[in-house]
């Protein structure tokens, strides 16, 4: 499974990770190697095998739809890079 440089750029965009132009070839190589290695899975016939998502095959536990968390906005926002008036600040999105 060879990953081309153009594909690395698409994946990096999907993952929202900036990659320098000179690093693209290196990622193409290591991703190709890893995906080549996992390729051996395709040799196994898994027809009819139910995918295992949880080791104990448990499903999500439900709880009553009640408020259990107190408002701790100030505490949680104390570590934010930029806040104002209780809001998280980001660069302008809509012109």
């Amino acid at each position: 499974m060879a990953i081309e440089a153009a594909e690395v750029k698409v994946i990096a965009h999907l993952a929202r990770i900036g990659i320098e132009e000179e690093a693209v070839a290196g990622y193409a190589r290591s991703l190709s190697e890893i995906l080549g290695f996992v390729e051996q899975m395709s040799a196994v016939d898994t027809t009819g095998v139910e995918p295992l998502a949880h080791p104990l095959d448990a499903t999500q536990r439900l709880r009553p739809d009640e408020v259990t968390e107190p408002d701790q906005r100030e505490l949680y926002q104390a570590g934010a890079p930029a806040v104002e008036a209780g809001l998280y600040l980001v660069p302008r999105v809509v012109e």
Binding site: G18, A80, V90, P91, V93
Partner: peptide, 19 residues
Amino acid sequence: GVRYGHRCAEPQGLEDLYK
């Protein structure tokens, strides 16, 4: 880079902030 943790300096737009 919005709610906690590292944030790059002087982001030029949201996508640049993330990346």
